[in-house]
Amino acid sequence: MAVSLLTQEVSDLCLGKPALRCLSVSANIGDALSALKRLRENYLSVWTCNHDHDPDASFSSTSKSDDCVCIGKICMVDIICFLCRQDCLKSPTTALHSPLSVLIPRSPAGLVTHLEPHASLVEAIDLMLEGAQNVVIPIQSRRNTTSSRKKLLLHNKPSSNSTLHNNREYCWLAQEDLIRYLLNFIGLFNPTPINPINTLNVIETENILAIQYDSPALAALPLISQSLINHTSVAIVDADGKLIGEISPFTLNSCDEMVSAAIATLSAGDLMAYIDCGGPPEELVQTVKDRLEERNLGAFLELMEEESIITSSSDDEVGGSGGHGRSGRLGGYSARLVRRSEAIVCYPWSSLVAVMIQALAHRVSYVWVVEEDGSLAGIVTFVGMLKVFRERLKSMI
């Protein structure tokens, strides 16, 4: 059984995975925003196609001259963080016409990496441990290539409606997919999974992304961006270092671009209440509007008012039923289930397998570690877990 796991091909983990929705790196941020709302997707993959002589093809140093290469992914959090910049708040319409390439990090490299379907599970784990957020893998096309798709391929302008590149469709694997798969074989790793996490060197205590409750939310902006890359979150703590809650990219991703104004004007603690499921309290919405006006950010205030009118119209069209998605939100929230700002926590003496199950159950890639008094002690991430399992796999070779 151990040998079978070591030689497992990543294509087996791709069964049932949907094909990636695509955008060209030559699109602009407004295009990405419209696609995210229209398709109600969490992420869109971004591609550069050298044989189309794309000016941004330099993003990929490994692509061949006739290849389409996925160079990154875009989500609502990327757009929210971009719009929080002072110049973007002053002129959000202009900001949305900025090229999509400004949201694709040029470093650290390798956040999105291609891998062939016959590669082993171990190879995928190693790529994740080297810093890859997602591994892009070709999948067998579930439909014939029609003439329109062939035309799209020849012109090679990836759009949010396209899933085909190099006459292939692709999916991606995330850290969660690997952890979920390894959980199916957890017995092979005994006794490691039942050991307390404080005995496995898996608790990260350095460089924890945290901010105090009363600090300006804008001070958390670089932390939010980093947590999106790290697949973690930003802890909100009180003056004594006790964990109060979190600002999670997962939750922010269920909001719309108007949350940028809340980040720019509220405290970290108030932002938690603003993005919590159920929609922001009316008094906080008014506070945001008042502060935008005080700071001469009338352009963004006008955008908020326009969005409010659009959302109200969407509500009327569905008979006030409260049915909202990316295309129509109540207080900046989609109708799909979002997690509250209450942090998911464990203790130093919790077992590794218990923490794994806890993270998977809540659809997060990390769990905060707290002491008995609630003080923040560290964080356990999927990457840390993968390191533990990778060491055990070495002993099986």
Rank of each mutant, 00 (worst) to 15 (best):
C14V: 12
A19I: 06
C22S: 08
L23I: 02
A27I: 00
N28K: 13
D31H: 10
S34P: 04
A35Q: 00
L39P: 00
E41D: 01
L44F: 08
S45Q: 04
V46N: 04
W47R: 00
D54N: 13
D56G: 01
D56S: 09
A57H: 15
S61F: 08
C70T: 14
I74M: 00
C75W: 01
V77I: 09
I79H: 04
C81I: 15
D87N: 11
T93G: 09
A95Q: 05
P99F: 03
V102A: 08
S107H: 01
A109E: 15
G110F: 12
P117V: 04
H118F: 12
A119Y: 05
E123F: 07
A124C: 14
I125D: 01
L127R: 14
A132N: 07
V136W: 03
S148C: 07
K150I: 13
K151F: 14
K157R: 12
K157L: 13
T163A: 02
N167I: 06
W172E: 02
L173M: 06
A174T: 13
I179V: 14
L182Q: 04
N184M: 12
I186Q: 02
I186F: 02
I186D: 02
I186L: 04
N195K: 13
P196L: 14
T199C: 06
T199M: 08
L200N: 07
L200H: 08
L218Q: 08
L223A: 08
I224Q: 11
L228G: 11
I229G: 08
S233Q: 05
A235Q: 06
V237E: 11
G241Q: 05
I244W: 01
I247L: 15
F250E: 14
L252A: 07
S254E: 07
M258T: 15
L266R: 08
I275H: 02
G278E: 03
G278H: 00
P280D: 05
E282I: 12
D290K: 05
D290F: 10
R291V: 05
L292K: 13
L297D: 05
A299M: 06
A299Y: 03
L301W: 13
L303S: 10
D315Q: 14
G320C: 10
S321Q: 08
S321N: 04
R326Y: 09
S327N: 10
G328F: 07
G332F: 01
R336N: 13
R340P: 09
A343E: 03
P348T: 01
W349A: 05
S350G: 12
S351P: 00
L352M: 09
V353Q: 14
L360D: 01
R363T: 09
S365I: 05
V370N: 00
E372W: 00
S375V: 11
L386W: 08
K387A: 04
R390M: 11
S395F: 11
S395N: 07
